[in-house]
Amino acid sequence: MKVTMRVDGADVAAEIDRPGESLLATLRDRLGRTGSKNACEQGECGSCTVLLDGAPVCSCLVATAQCEGRDVKTVVGAVPRPVRDAFVQCGAVQCGFCTPGLLVSVADLLGRNGDPSDLDIREALAGNLCRCTGYEKIIDAVHTAAAGLAGEPR
């Protein structure tokens, strides 16, 4: 079947041959958009988080067949520059495999709450596993990103 959707601002069409194919598999293997990472395929690690019509989802748990006509934003299209810069500057990136999913979750959080507390951050990012950082620098980065976004016109 053919599924058309909007990915990071571009209209794309994907021909899928399995009804159960995940949005993550379509993005990565059919569309070559490898920014979203596959680390568990069970919705446990958050590495594949994308915004689906603006809401954060694990793209490994969404069937591509459900995405007809919908808007998908990956790390490429969902994350404001100051959020990426904050991760780079604060040392929140080590191996970086969790980073694309985390960035999407952070973008979602900061879209809802422009000045989150540490606890707000911990709750919002509880679905994104990171094995390298112990999360300290990630919390620093979210605060830095919030300040960066506050300082720029929205």
Binding site: S36, V79, G91, T99
Partner: peptide, 10 residues
């Protein structure tokens, strides 16, 4: 980090 920019850009 020299790899950070590519990692945050996917």
């Amino acid at each position: 980090r020299p790899d950070a920019e590519a990692k945050v850009n996917g």
